[in-house]
Every structure is written in C-alpha cells, then in structure tokens.
Nucleic acid binder design. Sequence first.
DNA 1: CAGTGGTCTAGACCACATG
DNA 2: ATGTGGTCTAGACCACTGT
Lengths: 242, 242
Amino acid sequence: MAGDGETAPRVRPLYRGVRETLVRRIAEGVWQPGQALPSEFEIAADLGVSQGTVRKALDELTAERLVVRRQGRGTYVARHDDERILFQFFKLIPDSGERRFPESRVLAVARRAADEAAAGRLGVAAGAGLVEIERVRCVGGTAAIVERITVADALYPGLAERALPNNLYELYAAEFGVTIAAATERLKAVAAGPREAEHLGLAPGTPLLAVDRTATAIDGRIAEWRVSLCRTDGLHYLCELP
Amino acid sequence: MAGDGETAPRVRPLYRGVRETLVRRIAEGVWQPGQALPSEFEIAADLGVSQGTVRKALDELTAERLVVRRQGRGTYVARHDDERILFQFFKLIPDSGERRFPESRVLAVARRAADEAAAGRLGVAAGAGLVEIERVRCVGGTAAIVERITVADALYPGLAERALPNNLYELYAAEFGVTIAAATERLKAVAAGPREAEHLGLAPGTPLLAVDRTATAIDGRIAEWRVSLCRTDGLHYLCELP
DNA sequence: CAGTGGTCTAGACCACATG
DNA sequence: ATGTGGTCTAGACCACTGT
C-alpha cells in the first residue's frame, strides 16, 4: 500500500522526508540522547511507508553519526560521550600512543556584545550577547592548547554562571538541547604570542597550530565558534582524506 | 572501559564480496578510469546475485569515490581529473575566494635508497629504490608550498626520467596503473628553515604548516609519501568534521 | 523509444540480544 | 521465545539520458 503514484509531485525521495521527520523529532527532544527509537516497523507504520524506506533514512542518520544502531538491540540517539567527542571532534593526537581526552582548566568566562567578526562567525546580529570562555587544555600532563570559545548567549541562557565541564558538547546537549552535529575547521600556522607562550611554557614566537572551528547543531544553526592554539611538538593534527 | 574494537563479522555479507570483485577488476584495469561499468543487471547476472545486492556494493564504491554514477547514463570508474584532486586531496584554500589548482615547478628529481624512516612510511624494505621529487607550488601566483614527494621505484618504473605534470595522481593512474584512493595527513606547525624561507620569499623562522601525507592505492598498498611545507598567510587548511 | 540508475515495496531468512 | 537490526531477493515504477 502506501500509494506512491497519484500524490503530489515528488521531487524529493520519500526516505528524505522520513529522515527529516526523524531529525526533527530528535532535535525537539522527543527521543533523548541515549534513548532508543521505535523499531523500523513501528516507524514505518507510524509514517505510512515501508520498512525498507525507514531503513534507508536510518542508514543516512547512521552515516551522519546522529544515531547508533546495534543488531538485536535497537536504534539509539547518539550521545556526546567522551569517546565520540574524542574520535569525531578532537583531532590532536600524540605522535606515538593513544588518543587521550584532554583535561581543561578554565581561565576566564566573560559576557560581551558581539563585534562584527564574532557576529559573522556565529550568524547573530552585531551587538548580540555573547559568552566567551578561555581555557587551557592538557594532553598527557603537559599544557598543549590555549583556546577561546565564543557562543551566543541566547542559545545557552545562564551558561556564564555555570561550572564548566571538560566536555562542553555534552553540556550543550543535556542542559540546553543543542546537539552539535558537525564542524568546520580552518588551520593556520602562527607564532605564539607572549600570552600563549606563558600558558604553554614555550618561548614567544614558537610556531603553533591555530584551529578555527565553527560547530553546527543538527537543526543547522551555528552553535559555537572556537579558536584553539596548539603546540605540535609531540602532537599532531590528524586528518583522513577518504 | 575502552570499548574494544569490534571484530570482523562472522559471515561476510554477499555485497562485500561483490564489492571486492569489482574493486579487483578496477585495480586490474578491466575497466579503465572514465569508462563505464556494465549495468547493475549485467553485473548481477555475471556474479549470480540479485540487482539489489550489486546496487549495495556500488553504493559503497560511490561513497568511497571509486566510481561515479549518473542516472540514465551508467556507472563510470572515477578519474583523477584536476577537479577531483582539488576537492578530495587539496585542502589548502585561499582565505577568501575560490579553490584553485596550484601550479608546480620541479626543483629536483633524485633516486636514492630507502633509509629507515622512508622505508617505514612507504612499507618497503630498507635499501629499496626510491624516487624523490622536490617542487614548489604556487597558489594564485605566489609561491605557497615547498614539498618533497617520495615513492618506491618499483611501483613507478622510469618515473625519475619522465617529465612530471602538475597532477601526479593522474600520471600514476594513467601510466602506472596505480590509483590513489585515500590519504592520511598529519599536520604540525614548524618554523621555516633557510631553504623554505628562500623558496617562499619569507623570513627564516616564519611559522609554516607541515603536512605529512601517506597516500594509499585502491589495492591497499602505500603509494606515496609527501611532506608539504605551506605558508598560511592568506591561505588555510580546510577540514570538515562530519 | 530503449536502457540506465533511483526509489519503493513486500517478504524471507539470518545474526544478535534479551528475558 | 521474542524482538531487534542486517542481508538478500524479486518486482514494480519513476526519472533521466541518449537514439
């Protein structure tokens, strides 16, 4: 059943619509991170399509790391646990040895109004309220990263007054319903200024890797702007070109 | 803790075998880059599986960019034309403006025996014959990259005596049957030495982005080792985290 | 028009996890 | 035993491309 012929003109495949519906429900929190979605057949019956069409939509969501499927168990909304962050968003790896989740020490949290640069990066109006977080991160016991994180106040009300955990993306998802889905990083090599040099215990002028990231939530909004200055002695940034 | 790596499935899906067969035939040159594969039904009949199974295998090859499918036309072996190289393998982008394919000027071509470092990177025995290419690349008219390319002599017989085009991967594929399928890049920030500084017209000590790439052919062999030193004023390295 | 890939459906069976 | 996702098949129709 599920007549496919005489309905309205279909420019978009059916499974794309199913995918959008599922994404919307996840974004709205109908199914929370870590919870199971209904089975393929239940979703299919609910939406009036066949199970194969639901599977195709779920295959896409799996590829986008939005859900995790386990044979015999079910389909679960992906969580921003440390391991996922480590593999999807943290690309700075020790030259030899395992990836490790970096420790963080917050230097400062401040609220300010968006200037042109920040407004452009975050997709907000100039003058909008921002929160800026500065912190130092350690990999394997040595200070390796100095970073500044900038977010729109409106997305995370009260963030500036909170205690900030190591894994911010988990906080965004759990407390503010903002699920980071993807990011774009732009890298440059720069010379350490006196401030970075002091925090990292390096001579000023030492080459650092500057990573400029904008992160996007599953609803498409820009959810964070982050600039990280990283030492790369004993560490490197890993990028796979598939 | 530490979710252990999942072992290989006990039974290999049929479409995986179809995929391997197709990859093997492409690697052997049964179908040349740019040429069309047989239709899904022909492949299915040939291999004794259903068309849906062939489709699943071809979907994977499409995702890996090994083939290109065009509705109504057919399925084609992907070519290493400039555009594909530009988007898949060249990540250094002008800060504002279009991606452009860089011009190359070869500085030197030399043959030497593999030391420990090169042997480890290329997966050959120490002492094996190598070819080393050094060149300068220009993006938008200004010298931006100094790079050294190292390959095993055995894979590309006579390479050192050839004229070297801008797009080496196309040469590898067309003349030596080596199709680059993927690469891993490791990035560090380093200070320009006197040699790089001169070629790029910069002061020694200027921070440069060091990109250390190993490229893998579709048969899994390591096909190239390349170290590129890049200026990042007006340029940046773009990395999407999906 | 015929041939191609793209979508959608329906049903069967398998592998895995849980009770 | 039951329910889940994973694989495989078979067939139908649609959309696009070329002749």
